[in-house]
Nucleic acid binder design. Structure first.
Lengths: 128, 128
DNA sequence: TGTTCGATACGAAGGGTTTCGTAATAACAA
DNA sequence: TTGTTATTACGAAACCCTTCGTATCGAACA
C-alpha cells in the first residue's frame, strides 16, 4: 500500500477527505458531503470514484444495491507525499522557511504555540 | 499587483522560481536552468512564458534580439496563497498539524529548530 | 412476471496545461 | 544588400481533469 506516486487531483482529494473522515461510505454519502460545500452532480462524484478505483485510490464492495467505497492510501501517507512536493516546489525544500511562514500567516492560539514549542524541544532532546 | 487569484500551474511555478532566484532573465537562461533538472524543449519554455505574459504573471522588455522576462507577483505573495490552499485542502486548515508534520518529517538542524523556537517565543510575546 | 426506482456504467464534451514543430522575424556579419 | 543564425510567434496535437446526460442494471415489490 506504499504507492510510489500518490498524486490525487483536487477533486480526488476532496473525496479522500470524506472517506478518511467518515470511513467507508456510499457514493450518496460522499456526494451529500461535498454537495453541501460546492454544487456538484451525483454522477460526477460517481464517475470520479470509479476512476479512482482504476487508479487504485479506492476499493469497494457490494452491499445490496449499493457500493461501499473505502480509501486505499492512508491519510498520513498522502499528506506526507503532498507535503514533500509542496515544500520542494514552493519553498525550495526549506522546512524552516515554510514553518515560519505558516506561523506568521495564521495566528495559532497560545496553546497551540506552546504545544509546538514543546514538540520542538522534544525533537531537540531526541537528537542529542 | 495584489492579484486576487494567483494560481500558477506547476510548470509556471518552476519558471517563477527561476526568475525569483536569478532575477530578470532570458528564455535561454530559464530553459537552461530547467532543462538541467528535467528534459524540456526550448520552445516549450518560450511558449509557457508567452502565456504567462498574457496571464499577467510575467512582464518583459526587449534587449537587442532578446526579451528579458521578469516575474510580476512577489514570491512571498504566491507562497502565501498556495500555502493557504494547501493547508486547507490537505490539512483541514490546521496550521498546527501541518507544522508538526513538517518538523517530524524533515529533521531541521539544531540551529534551525532553535530559530523556530525563538520565533515562536517572539510571536507569543507580540500577542500579549 | 413485470414494473418501478435508485444506483451504476459509460461516453463524450468542455476546458485547461504542456509539448513541440514550423514559420516568421530581427540582428549581425560579410 | 544579402545570407546566416539566434530568437520569437504561432498553431495544433496530446494529454488530463471535471462534468453531466443517458443508458443500463438489479433489487424489491405488486
Amino acid at each position: 500500500m506504499t504507492e510510489k506516486h500518490i498524486k490525487p487531483t483536487e477533486a480526488e482529494l476532496e473525496i479522500l477527505q470524506v472517506l478518511w473522515e467518515k470511513g467507508p461510505s456510499t457514493v450518496k454519502t460522499v456526494h451529500e458531503s461535498l454537495d453541501g460545500i460546492r454544487s456538484v452532480g451525483y454522477t460526477t462524484i460517481l464517475k470520479l470514484m470509479q476512476i479512482m478505483i482504476q487508479k487504485g485510490l479506492l476499493t469497494r464492495k457490494r452491499d445490496g444495491r449499493n457500493h461501499i467505497y473505502a480509501a486505499v492510501p492512508e491519510r498520513k501517507a498522502v499528506q506526507r507525499q503532498l507535503l514533500d512536493r509542496f515544500l520542494n516546489g514552493v519553498f525550495g525544500g526549506s522546512a524552516q522557511k515554510m514553518v515560519m511562514q505558516v506561523l506568521g500567516q495564521y495566528r495559532a492560539s497560545p496553546r497551540e504555540l506552546k504545544e509546538i514549542r514543546q514538540y520542538i524541544k522534544k525533537l531537540e532532546k531526541d537528537k542529542s
